[in-house]
């Protein structure tokens, strides 16, 4: 899996299809972000090396082609294709001490959330049956 290096020396390993921001957050790192949905541009950083890809449509108003070409990376949407190095813009990475401790111990796995899809189709898990004879 690709890694993300934040200059100068923080390196985290990503999961498949994970964005730069998700990977860093999961390891307890934080920096200034906004909508986390590719709409505001607050999470931009400089892509120093490596390549990223955008699996979702990004508005030109948020990230222009010129910015992409000149190494601006919209971290909440950018999925690295190989090992990448980024540099934050006028900001330092902070780390949540609890997460830092826990990340050292065991990676968390969260099942994908079950999204609602339209009108409810109730499905009730079968309850253990009591004694049928009673």
């Amino acid at each position: 899996m690709p890694t993300v290096r934040v200059q100068p020396d923080v390196v985290v390993e990503l999961r498949a299809e994970e964005t730069v921001l998700e990977g860093l957050y999961r390891h307890g790192y934080a920096y200034r972000t906004g909508c986390r949905r590719g709409g505001c541009g607050v999470c931009k950083v400089d892509l120093v090396s490596g390549t990223v890809r955008y699996t979702r449509v990004i508005s030109q108003a948020v990230l222009t082609d010129e910015e992409r070409a000149s190494g601006t990376c919209l971290t909440c949407r950018a999925v690295p294709l190989d090992d990448v190095t980024i540099a934050l813009r006028e900001e330092e990475l902070s780390r949540n001490p609890l997460l830092a401790f826990l990340c050292g111990a065991s990676p968390s796995t969260r099942p994908p959330s079950q999204r609602a899809t339209g009108r409810p189709t109730p499905s009730i898990p079968e309850l253990p049956r009591g004694d049928e004879q009673r």
């Binding site: 590719g38 508005s59 948020v62």
Partner: peptide, 8 residues
């Protein structure tokens, strides 16, 4: 909160 495009 934010919609999936980042509109608040």
């Amino acid at each position: 909160y934010f919609d999936p495009s980042g509109n608040r």
